[in-house]
Every structure is written in C-alpha cells, then in structure tokens.
Design a protein around this nucleic acid. Sequence first.
DNA 1: AGCACA
Length: 461
Amino acid sequence: MSSSGQPQFRYTQTPSKVLHLRNLPWECTEEELVELCKPFGKIVNTKCNVGANHNQAFVEFAELNQAISMISYYASSSEPAQVRGKTVYIQYSNRQEIVNNKASGEVVGNVLLVTIEGVEAGDVSIEVIHLVFSAFGYVHKIATFEKAAGFQALIQYTDAATASEARNALDGRSIPRLYLLPEHVTSCHLRISFSAHTDLNIKFQSHRSRDFTNPYLPVNPSAIEGTLQPVLGPDGKMKEPESNVLLASIENMQYAVTVDVLHTVFSAFGTVQKIAIFEKNGGTQALIQYPDVTTATVAKEALEGHCIYDGGYCKLHLSYSRHTDLNVKAYSDKSRDYTVADTGILAAPQGSSVTIVSTGLQANPHVAGTFVSNVGMQQAFPNRQMPSWDPNKANYASMGGTFPGQPFGPSAGAPYPASAARPTASAGYVQASQQMPQYGIQPRPAAARGAPFIGHPPRYF
DNA sequence: AGCACA
C-alpha cells in the first residue's frame, strides 16, 4: 500500500499525528512548541523536555494530515523550523499518540483552573487569590466555586503565556502564610491546570466572583450584607471592619485634590454618594461613601497605594472608615452629597482630568501594583463628545500593591449553581466567550509596569 | 540532532 498520497516526499518513517522534535533550546516551553506547530493544525497534546538532554519534545496533532502538512512544509522549506533562532529537527514519532501525558487541563489557555487543597471556600478570599495571581499579569476575572475536588477558582488572564507563567510559578506551591489564611488552615497547596474557557462570564461582583474589567458590573445583593466583622490582617492583628465608607489619606499632595477629582476617581467603581475632605495631622484626608461595602472593598483594593497623578503625586492610602453614613453639606468646596436631588451643579466634573497611574513602588516586585485607569478623557478629547460607555471596554486594572485581605461577610450563599470540577460551557455562570473585549490595557511585562495609560471615561451617576 | 510512563 502506498503511503498517504499527499506529499511527493518520501519519508523513512510512517506518518503519525505525533511529531518528534529535537535540538530544542533549553527549557523550551510548551508555548514555544505550540507557536511553532499550531499553524499546521490543532495541537491536542505535547510533551516537553524529554530525552537525555531534555532538548526533545513531542507534539500531537488532532489529525494525521496536520502532522503531515508540517513535515511536508519543512521538508520543502528553505527556512528550517526554529525555536528561539535554533534549528529544530522534526520527524514523525514512532508512536501514534502521546500517552499518559497531559489531561485536557494541560492544554494551555488563558484561563487557569486552580484547586486550593485543604481549604474551604471561606478560608481564602477572592482578594487573596487576586493578589497572588496578579503577580504575573493583569487578572481579568475570577470565579470561585466549591466542588468535590475542593475549593476551586477560575482565573482569567489576557493570554496563555501569562497564564502559563503563573501556573509554572505557583503549581504545587502554597499560598504564603503571610497572605493570611485562617489559623486552622495547615496547608493550602495550589493545583493548577488550564481551563478550556477563554472568557469567563461573570454575572456579579460578589464574594465568589469578580470581573476586574468591569467596575460597573452589578454587585450581587447577597454579597452586600457583609456584617461589620473584624478580620485578621497578615500579621494577625485586627484590621478595621469593612465599611461602605472609605477613609483616604492623600500623600505627597503636590496638586490640589478637589471633591470633583475624588468623585471622578472613585466613581470608577460605583456610585459615590458623599465625599468629605478635611485636614488631619497636617495631611489631607477624605471620606468617600459608597452605597455598599462591596463597592468600597473593590475601590479600596484597586486604588490602595496608587497615585491620582503621574509622578507619584497624590498617592492614596485607603482604609475603612467607622462611618457608614456621612453627614455633609450637600455642596461646598470640601464636601458633596450626590444623593440630594439638586445641588445646582453638575455631578460630573467636566473640567477635571485625572489619571491614575502606577506608583511603581512595592515591597514585593512580584506583586507590584499597577493600577491604571484614566478617568479623565475629557482632556484627551477637549472639544469632543465623549464616547459612550461600553462595559465591555471598561478599563480598570488592579494589582494589589498592599495586602487587601478583606473577606466578604458570611451572609452570602452560593449565588451560582455548582459546576463540574472542570467547568464546562454549560456550567451556568461560566460560558465560553463569543467575543473577546478589546481592552485598552494588556497585562504588561514587569518592565512596562507603571506606564501611564489612557482609558475610557467613567460613567457619571 | 535521533523517541517518552513519571
């Protein structure tokens, strides 16, 4: 019988869906293999770093003809297959499939499935997860759930490379004690694989799911009623109870911080009800009131340690106020009450332009804070109608520069149906995306962190 | 530069 009629080249080996690659560069990653091979077909499995020198790998295509097309291409190409500039030699494997290698969870993707062993859902807050995983890039979304396998989280990055980095660094590791974890948690090893999802469909901001790309996503009512219960900080000391009112201390205030400026900044996370600015101990502080604790928590985590203006000016330090409802003048130069019907002014500060940029400072460079959200596009389009708000283009990236560690209150029940250990598209709240929103920002390499960013304007309420 | 079960 003649060998698969396709190429006019003769091969010493019988074709296989599996290709054997040699002379690979040191520590060749799966992504590099995939980059090389995916133009020829769908890769269903890989096996890296095999052979005596760990410089060989196997790639399995979904279809035989895809493997044949790759062999054929490089047989006739003047350019050899290369990875990092190194010529890679490819031939059919003498096996027909890669066995006992990866489950589907090893097929790289931009969404990680993280199983946190030895903990229950309440033990590790979404803030902690966000903090840990933000060390590797901008985390778009997080969904957590409890399964037979234990407490799990889906963590969405922009791309598979970032997800892989996070996985490589964290798989099998524990969340550092430093990051909190209740006393009774003795171990919390992370088991990380890749989800088949590319875009999580987060319906609400809640104690178990978060969409960091869309600050206007409604807050799940079940997550709002967090009781004001004290929580432990990383050092075991009591932190202030959560509150819907944030206390902001403004450091290095080289520029005036007005009520309008604060309103613009804090409106990115939800409706700001009231603002009061005052002096204390020679510094400027402000109280910002949201309708609920969750919004305040999101704002606090996102803004903590970041600067209102580029260059390290007007750096924000946030804590929870003991207040829950401010009693402020409806309209003065130091306060505003946006809940009263008519203050005679526009709520939207048309003139102010505020850019949040990263401070770039951080004790732990891996958890470097990079908050970027331009909430002052008026300056960029001074005489133009602002583009209408598009939630798909909401820009707000936060990477906890400091330890957030504010779990939600215990009241909320599971708002979503449980899904399978490896959630599928039918799992209710998680669906494969039909579209990938175009974000103005991408998770940026460490070197690029801190670069100013122009985003979309907030909606004014 | 030459075929992997962990």
